[in-house]
């Protein structure tokens, strides 16, 4: 379970200080499917980065399964990310020099997991991209690239999947297919938190959190 108490995040100091988050308090249950919506600059990406342990809050408390993550050192945050979090990015963030297979294998290498081949092949099969596994990302369509990014996120079996505008770079039909994938992931028991501008995408989740000017509005 994720619990935030009066979480704040400031960038800069003094007059040039920007308040990206201004006291966010929320609870996200384990295994839930949540969308965070808001305008550009509202602080939703900052919130996602803090939830994923890629950034730290300026103030407030962040609990994950009862552990106070906001007090973690950088090393502890690394371990926290490795154990609990997987990311899916808007622009896929695939490494173009590697094949689809190698991209999906990467999180397993980072976690020193053996017998990687079976795990990778299974997840590629599940997402319907096993036929393109030897291709480089730039040689496949945007939808296939995002499926690859999702495969990479789920292969390490992290309990929480964080997605930052996962359909932002895709057409409506492909975007809808990608959301189907997230629904499947959610059904398998994972917690899915995604950021989106698209209300159609958000409405398919269990819960919508609106954020404006660093505050939760709904």
């Amino acid at each position: 379970m994720i619990k935030l108490e009066e979480l704040t995040k400031d960038y800069g100091k003094g007059e040039s200080c920007t308040h990206a988050l201004r006291g966010i308090s929320l609870t996200i249950e384990k295994g839930s499917y949540v969308s965070i919506v808001g305008t550009s600059g509202s602080g939703k990406s900052t919130l996602l980065h803090i939830l994923g342990g890629m950034d730290t809050a300026t103030g407030g408390k962040y609990y994950f399964d009862g552990q106070l993550v906001s007090d973690y050192s950088l090393k502890q945050l690394e371990d926290f990310r490795r154990k609990n979090i997987s990311f899916v990015f808007q622009n896929f963030a695939l490494m173009n020099q590697y094949s689809i297979y190698e991209n999906v294998e990467m999180p397993l290498i980072a976690r020193h997991i053996k017998n990687r081949k079976k795990l990778v092949c299974d997840v590629l099969e599940r997402l319907g991209i096993s036929e393109i596994k030897d291709k480089k990302p730039l040689k496949v369509s945007g939808g296939q690239q995002q499926r690859c990014a999702i495969a990479r996120a789920i292969v390490s079996d992290s309990p929480v999947i964080l997605a930052d505008e996962p359909t932002g770079a895709l057409d409506q039909k492909t975007g809808s297919e990608i959301i189907d994938c997230f629904e499947d992931i959610h059904k398998s028991g994972k917690t899915v938190i995604l950021i989106t501008h698209d209300m159609k995408v958000a409405e398919r989740s269990e819960r919508i959190i609106r954020i404006e000017d660093g505050r939760i509005t709904d």
Binding site: G52, R81, F87, R111, R152
Partner: peptide, 16 residues
């Protein structure tokens, strides 16, 4: 830079 960031997000440590 982006590649290093992606590697961090995939679970690679700073030490790696």
């Amino acid at each position: 830079l982006r590649q290093y960031g992606v590697l961090y997000s995939l679970g690679f440590s700073k030490k790696n």
